[in-house]
């Protein structure tokens, strides 16, 4: 687990230059609004980043739950680690599309559901009615809802963890990697954050491709965590009828 978390942290640090571009506006607005000048910058920064962390972990806890459900269903047909494979494939697909776009290949333009954008707009308008600290937390929480491919690539990886807790750990690692540069922007040090070179998007995309390929090639679980009451061993796969013995070979695996 630790090597994976280390890799995620590093990737997040490298890719956080894009986070500055996309979310820098929100951290600046959360921390730098005129009515927030009387409030300590550290309180505002903490509220913003903790708001982000809260929704990051909530989303992936849900994603992990879905992942474990997929795994449980997949066991019925003898496919192990289906969730991880699905998530790795999604990450690889996203990275491939991104690389093609960088190479100048025109792809069909994906239109994000307007209803989702409206939801985010509603949330931000509501956030602006709050006092500075809750507002900063709300804006931080709402960033998770923005359609950020980079973020959701890591959510997809978290989905493959097979459980809520490891999924949350993945996002904590991702979050840690984004804090330094975003905090710097929030402190008004935008000028200290150099404009990223054109290699950054390519680099981050390649990182995602590598993670995806490695996962698909290995096809292994990172952790042995499973759902309560459910054995990860195929022979002990959950059964519907109590008359069938618990240690009987599964009909689908019997040659």
């Amino acid at each position: 687990m630790m090597p994976l978390l280390g890799a995620i942290l590093l990737a997040s640090l490298v890719g956080s230059t894009h986070c500055v571009g996309m979310c820098g506006a929100f951290v600046t607005l959360a921390v730098g609004a005129p009515d927030a000048r009387a409030v300590s910058a550290w309180r505002l920064q903490s509220a913003y980043h903790l708001g982000r962390l809260t929704t990051y972990t909530s989303v992936v806890a849900l994603a992990g739950l879905i992942g474990s459900s997929i795994d449980l269903s997949a066991m019925l047909v003898g496919v192990q680690n289906l969730a991880l494979m699905v998530s790795a494939s999604l990450v690889g697909l996203f990275a491939s599309f991104r690389l093609l776009a960088l190479a100048g290949v025109r792809l069909p333009r994906h239109v994000f559901p307007a209803a989702w954008t409206r939801l985010v707009e509603h949330g931000h308008r509501a956030a602006w009615t709050l006092t500075p600290v809750p507002r900063a937390a709300a804006i931080g929480a709402l960033t998770t809802l923005l359609p950020c491919g980079w973020l959701y690539a890591f959510v997809a990886i978290a989905l493959g963890m097979g459980g809520p807790a490891p999924a949350a750990l993945v996002m904590v690692a991702f979050w840690i990697g984004t804090v330094p540069l975003l905090a710097a922007v929030g402190m008004g040090a935008r000028k200290l954050v150099a404009r990223p070179g054109s290699f950054i998007p390519v680099a981050t995309t390649v990182v995602l491709l590598l993670i995806s390929a490695a996962t698909l090639a290995g096809r292994g679980r990172i952790l042995g965590l499973t759902l309560p009451g459910v054995s990860s061993n195929l022979a002990g796969a959950p059964i519907c009828h109590p008359a069938i013995a618990a240690d009987a070979p599964h009909p689908l695996t019997t040659p």
Partner: peptide
């Protein structure tokens, strides 16, 4: 928005 380069394909 972010002043980064727009990929040519986009």
């Amino acid at each position: 928005h972010c002043s980064l380069d727009v990929p040519p394909g986009l």
